[in-house]
Amino acid sequence: MTHASKTGASAPPVEVHDLTVSYQNKPVLWDVDFTLPEGTLTAIVGPNGAGKSTLIKVIMGLIEPVSGHALIYGKPLQQMRKRIAYVPQRESVDWNFPVSVLDVVLMGRYAHLKMFRRPGRRDRELALQALEKVGMAAYSDRQIAQLSGGQQQRVFLARALAQDADIYFMDEPFAGVDASTEEHILQLLRELRSAGRTVIVVHHDLQTVSDYFDWVLMLNLRLVAIGPMETTFTKENLQKAYGGRLNILTQVIELSRRENFVRETEHD
């Protein structure tokens, strides 16, 4: 079943209209406008400071845009909060905070709990299931301070899974995780997609983009390109997004496109 049918109309999961954002008069996003189809894994790529995190934060309502707006299934965010989940960058919280892994994952359930209400047995079950899915069930009673970086990332993912949403926004979930965690996260993304969910991920590793995702959104202040991986993730577009910085990277991409994974260590 497609989730759009819940709303009755076939409104796309994410629409962004003429979005402009600036910090202290310095524009960070300029007239960004796009629509995402349902049930896709979309990567947001672009150089450092391109505005990737900002784009997600605006859609999540964490930052006020100067102009433009975003719609979730055709409606303003405020009405659709229960249908979106957010995995912020790991560095955005203090991991010394005195809470356990299960506590953090339960926070994902708060979206469905009224004020004053404590999480119940059902919420704990869902939280434990989410931990199971990220392979962290054995850690549920651990203090979050004792976790490695990859484990922290998985806890954040579990919290988002516990939200049980239709759209997932993730900011660099693959940053600084070990190979097995990366594999695990990728597995999860694919499960979400097969369940018909829409997943948008800020991704920094250009070598894996085309393997992991089926859509790509290329950003650098402006929207450079958006569309299915095969037609959009081209050398020209990468050149546009990364400008002169891409000399090595374009070569890597070309190599990987030819399915020839000889890594060359050439420098410009």
Binding site: L62, Q78, M107, R159
Partner: peptide, 17 residues
């Protein structure tokens, strides 16, 4: 519950409304 979440992760608290 609310004070805990807002103290730990205000961004997430905002996102869930």
């Amino acid at each position: 519950k609310e004070l805990k979440l807002v103290s730990f992760d205000p961004g997430f608290a905002t996102v869930i409304g």
